[in-house]
Amino acid sequence: MSQLAVLFTSVALVVIGLYAAIFVDNIIKKIIGISFIEEGANLFIVGIGYKSGGIVPILAPNMDVSWFTANASYPLPYGLVLTSIVIGASTLAVMLALVMVLYRRYGTLSTKVMLADTSKQEEYDE
């Protein structure tokens, strides 16, 4: 039940993010949308490791090992998500830095204005 809900939420986040990244004109909102896609992917991977009614995968000293392996959730996806969260934050920071530089040149946050000039230049080249 709760795994199904996790799946639904992650799909919703990815879809919302994709919509924003493709159709929204404002560049900062595009980037927010991209961060939602990343969060959706992370949530999905955490959902893989989750075991309904299980325990946190930390082996305490007084635990029986076979009981622990039967009940603990799968820790590998959690390790992956840790890395992925940090990667997401760093790409976000680089994109925002590029936006700040480009804002100084164009004075607007509209993607149509900011990123269209390269394609205009390409048309001119052709």
């Binding site: 994709l18 980037i31 991209i34 896609i37 680089v94 994109m95 990123l115 390269t118 230049q121």
Partner: peptide, 18 residues
């Protein structure tokens, strides 16, 4: 226009990698 190209590539990349 190298910054614009870099940002474009990056946006496509951050859609592709998740």
């Amino acid at each position: 226009y190298s910054y614009e190209m870099a940002l474009k590539y990056m946006i496509l990349g951050s859609i592709g990698s998740p």
